[in-house]
Design a protein around this nucleic acid. Structure first.
Lengths: 342, 342
DNA sequence: AATTTGATTACACACGTGTTCATAATCCTC
DNA sequence: GAGGATTATGAACACGTGTGTAATCAAATT
C-alpha cells in the first residue's frame, strides 16, 4: 500500500537493488545517483519496512522486556533506563507484563519469539529456568535484572544489597549507636538475607553484637507489618537505639509505632530504610535510606544486551559469564541521629 | 535458521500452503491431516514468524505506545491498563518514551512507522498535530490519552476533571463549609482551569461565593509551592475553613504550612487534594483526594484502538468522533471534616 | 587498436508466510 | 455409469527488502 523501493526505482529510472543500496549509504553506488534517489525517497515520503528487512536479515533490532507490573515503582525506573539506552542504540522495545501469572509469562515470551526479538530482558525477582528453556532454541540472549534466583548460567545485573546494608549499618555505628536492631521481611527471601548478612557483618566488624532478640522479621512488606515488628523490640529491657529496616515501607511503619508509643525519631531512636521510594522524602521525619540505582540497573542491562548481540554477530564465544553488580548510595535525611545520652 | 512451515510440510509429506492452512485452523483442510500437521509442528517446536506474516498481511498486531516518561506515576498505571487490554486481544505493545524532547518524539514515531504498527496511542499532555501528520500517510489510527490540547479531530480518552472538582467541592459543602479556597497550579494550563471551573460552579450552585482573594495560584506543582500558596490565605481577615487543591502534592504542602502555623488539619481547616498519588494515603492526616481512573483510562484507550482497527478492517466509515470521558471517585480520608464552630 | 581494469548498475533469488487459481480425488445424482 | 458437484491439495505468485553475481560501459593500459 505504502511507497516501496520499487516505486522509487521506477521514478528514478533504476532498479530496486540500486535504491536499496543507495538508501543504506552503500558507497558502491555513484554519489550523484545516490543523491537523486535519496531526494526522490524523501519527496515520496518513503518509510522503509523494518518488517521486510527483518525477514531478510533475520535481525529485528527489537528487544523484548518483561516485567511483572509496569507501574511497579521500582521497575518502572528500570524500564526508563532500558528504554533510554536502547533508544540511543537505535533499538526498539517490546514490552509485556506478566502480572505474576505463569501462564501469561509463557504467552508473552511466545508472542515475543514470534515477533523475532533479538534479545530478552527479564525484570523479575523470580524464575529464569522457564525463560531460558523457551528461549533456548531461538538463540536470543537473555539478561535478567535484579533476579534473586541466582541462576548461575544467566547474564545478570544485580544490586549489591549486602554492601548497601553494611553501609547503612556503618552510618549508624559512626553516629555512636551500639544497640542496633534489624527488621527483615519474611517474604523477601534472598534479598532480605543479604541485607541481614550485611547488617551482621558490619556489627561484628565494629566489635558489637546483634543478639537474636534484636533481629525480627516482619510478616510482609506492608506498613502495618513494620509497626507490628516494633512491638517485641519495645518490650526489651535494653531497647535498641537504632533500627535498620529491610525497606522504606517497614521503616515508616516502625516510625509510626514508635511515635505512637511516645518516642521521638530520631532523638530517642534512629530508623533507616532501604530503597528510597518516593514516599521516603516526604514522611516526618524525612527518612534516611539507601538509593538503589534503578535507572542505572536498566541502563546497564540494556548495554549488556547490546554487547551480547554484537559479540554474537561477530561469532565470538559469548561464553564468558556476564554478571554486573552495581552499588547505590546512602541518602542521609533526618531520621538518623546520634543515640540519646544514657 | 529456525523451523518453518516448509520443514513441517516436508516432514508431513504435504505442501507448505497446506501446513499454513492447517495451522491457522482453516476448515478446508481435512481434519486428520490438520491434526497430523499440528502434532508435527509441536514436535518440531515450530514458532511462526509474525514478521513474515505481517509482511504478507500488512497487519502487525502491534500497537505503539508513546509516553514521556515510563516511571511517571500517573502514566505508568495507564500503561498497565493498556498492556492488559492489548494482551487480552492478542496484540503486542511497542513502547517508547520521549523525555519531552521533540526531536526524540519524531524519531520514535518514525521507528514505529518503520515497524509498521497497526495503531498509535499517545500518552502526553501536549501535541497531537505532529503525530497526526507523521501518521497521516500510514493510515494507522491515533488515540490520545488525557491530552489537553483538545484536538477536535483526535480520538481521545479524557478524565472529567470538571465533574471531579465539583464533586470534591460538594463534599466540603456537604460537611458544612461556607468559606472555601482554591489553590491552582500556574503550570497546569487547561487542566487547572477545568478544576477551577468545577470549583466555581459548585460554589455558585450552593449559593455561596468565591471571591478572588480566595483563589490563588501556586507557581508550580512542587510541595513547597503548595506551602507558599497558603501564605496569602492565612492573612485574610476571614480565613477559609477548607482548601481545594489542584493536586495532592500542593495539598500536602499546604497542610505542612498550616500545621507549622499552629492550625490543626482538619479540625481548624480541611484540605483536599486531587490525583491520589501513592503518597496521599501515608501522610498525616491521610489525604482526602480524588482518584482518577488511571488504569481504566489506559484500558479504554486500548479498547478504543481495537474498535478503530476492526472498523477499519471492515471498511466502515470510521469518521464518527470517538471521545470518551471517564469519571473517577472521591476518596474520603482524614484531612476533611466539618468546619470549626465559629 | 585491442585488452584490461574499474566503476556502476541490472538480474535473479532468497527470507517465511498467505492467497488465488487450478487440479486431482471423491461423492452424489439421474 | 457418466456427468457434475464437492472436497482436498498443490503450484505459482506476492509481500518489501537485501545480497551475490553477471553485465554494461567508459577509461586506462599495453
Amino acid at each position: 500500500m505504502s511507497v516501496t523501493i520499487k516505486h522509487i526505482a521506477q521514478r528514478a529510472g533504476v532498479s530496486h537493488p540500486t535504491v536499496s543500496r543507495a538508501l543504506r549509504g552503500d558507497p558502491i553506488v555513484a554519489a550523484e545517483t545516490a543523491a537523486r534517489i535519496q531526494r526522490i525517497a524523501a519527496d515520496l515520503g518513503y518509510v522503509p519496512s523494518a518488517t521486510a528487512r527483518s525477514l531478510k536479515t533475520s535481525r529485528s533490532h527489537v528487544i523484548g522486556v518483561i516485567v511483572n507490573r509496569i507501574s511497579d515503582p521500582f521497575y518502572s525506573e528500570v524500564l526508563d533506563g532500558i528504554q533510554d539506552a536502547l533508544y540511543s542504540a537505535h533499538y526498539s522495545l517490546f514490552l509485556a507484563s506478566t502480572d505474576h501469572d505463569l501462564a501469561r509469562e509463557k504467552a508473552v515470551v511466545r508472542a515475543m519469539l514470534e515477533r523475532r526479538i533479538d534479545g530478552l530482558i527479564v525484570c523479575s525477582l523470580f524464575v529464569t529456568p522457564p525463560y531460558r528453556s523457551e528461549l533456548g532454541a531461538s538463540g536470543a540472549p537473555l539478561v535478567v535484572v535484579h533476579n534473586r534466583s541466582r541462576d548461575p548460567n544467566a547474564d545478570a545485573i544485580y544490586h549489591d544489597d549486602y554492601a548497601g546494608s553494611r553501609q547503612m549499618t556503618r552510618h549508624l555505628i559512626d553516629l555512636g549507636h551500639e544497640r542496633l536492631a534489624f527488621i527483615g521481611s519474611a517474604r523477601a527471601g534472598v534479598e532480605s538475607e543479604d541485607r541481614l548478612a550485611g547488617f551482621r557483618d558490619e556489627i561484628n566488624a565494629a566489635g558489637l553484637t546483634a543478639p537474636p532478640e534484636r533481629i525480627v522479621q516482619a510478616a510482609n512488606g506492608e506498613l502495618a507489618s513494620g509497626s507490628a515488628a516494633v512491638e517485641s523490640l519495645l518490650r526489651l529491657s535494653h531497647r535498641p537505639t537504632a533500627l535498620v529496616c529491610f525497606s522504606d515501607m517497614l521503616a515508616i511503619g516502625a516510625i509510626r509505632r514508635l511515635q505512637q508509643a511516645g518516642y521521638a525519631v530520631p532523638a530517642d531512636c534512629s530508623v533507616v530504610g532501604f530503597d528510597d521510594i518516593v514516599l521516603a522524602k516526604f514522611v516526618n521525619p524525612p527518612l534516611t535510606t539507601f538509593n538503589q540505582p534503578k535507572y542505572a540497573l536498566g541502563q546497564q542491562a540494556a548495554q549488556m544486551m547490546l554487547r551480547l548481540l554484537s559479540a554474537k554477530q561477530r561469532k565470538e564465544n559469548g561464553d564468558q559469564q556476564n554478571r554486573i553488580t552495581l552499588r547505590g548510595e546512602i541518602l542521609v535525611r533526618a531520621s538518623s541521629a546520634p543515640p540519646p545520652a544514657e
